[in-house]
């Protein structure tokens, strides 16, 4: 355990070295949110409510979703793919550690700096600049819990995509496809309330909803209570368990095809 914490500590320090990356991403995120503001403003026009959601609700939903998306972006799948292509994966495999936990702890630095340098300032901008009203109460506590679970879910999905890249030796295509599927099917780009019924049905049974829809609902819905929060968290835990088990079975398979080029 101490070893993984040490890994996390190093990953934080190593990430600070590349601080410019974070400041540029912050700029990009705020720009993206501004675009979403005008896009949804145009969609709403004079309408007060669409699908039961006001402009303010919808904007806050998509703005927060894209902030969380940036926050969760640790590029672990890219890292795994490059480690296979250039063979540096051997350096991880010769350590007496669990590969998945090793990768997770090595991404903590990205997560933490994403949160401090990108997500928090963006939320300040949302509140101060766009006058977003975030309900404050017990929901915040559950939101943070749910967000941690969302991250684990997001990590596990990226990990699986990384494992697929062991076989394909390329990552751009699959990683981008995964991003698009997550963004759409999780209700991050367009809230699930806007989906046609059949698509809503599909989204409901897929794990992606657990990543954005659950924490966002906990944070923003005013008419649900602790029982609903618990149900949401349960849904997340269920999917994490399923995906972690799958990823570990798949890892045993994927690691066998490793040929480790060069050196």
């Amino acid at each position: 355990m101490k070893g993984y914490l040490g890994m996390a500590r190093c990953s934080i320090m190593a990430n600070i070295v590349y601080r410019a990356h974070f400041f540029f991403t912050l700029g990009g995120t705020i720009l993206g949110i501004t675009l979403q503001f005008f896009l949804w403003k145009a969609i709403y026009g004079d309408a007060l409510l669409i699908k039961g959601m006001s402009f303010e609700d919808t904007f806050l939903w998509v703005a927060l979703s894209s902030t969380i998306f940036t926050m969760f972006k640790t590029y672990v799948d890219w890292e795994m793919c490059y480690s296979i292509i250039e063979g540096s994966i051997t350096q991880t495999l010769i350590k007496p550690t669990d590969y998945q936990l090793y990768m997770l702890s090595s991404r903590i630095g990205d997560l933490l700096l994403n949160t401090v340098i990108i997500a928090l300032p963006t939320i300040v901008v949302l509140i101060a600049g766009f006058h977003a009203a975030i309900p404050i109460g017990i929901n915040l506590l559950f939101f943070v819990l749910s967000l941690i679970l969302s991250f684990l879910l997001s990590f596990t999905l990226e990990f699986i995509v990384g494992l697929i890249s062991f076989r394909t030796n390329s990552i751009w295509g699959i990683s981008t496809t995964k991003d698009v599927i997550i963004m759409v099917m999780s209700g991050a780009v367009v809230p699930l309330a806007f989906f046609p019924d059949w698509l809503r049905g599909v989204a409901d049974v897929l794990p992606f909803r657990a990543m954005y829809d659950v924490p966002m609902r906990i944070l923003l819905s005013e008419n649900i209570g602790v029982m609903d929060y618990a149900k949401g968290l349960g849904f997340q835990i269920l999917w994490i368990t399923v995906l972690v088990v799958l990823s570990r079975i798949y890892f045993k398979q994927a690691i066998k095809v490793v040929t480790v080029n060069g050196g």
Partner: peptide
């Protein structure tokens, strides 16, 4: 293990940090 063409040290950090983590990992 030492693979001469690779390193197991943290590229971006002072080397002492790598030693400290390895101490914890092992």
């Amino acid at each position: 293990v030492v693979f001469g063409q690779r390193t197991q040290l943290w590229w971006d950090l002072p080397v002492i940090e790598s030693f400290k983590v390895l101490k914890e990992i092992y």
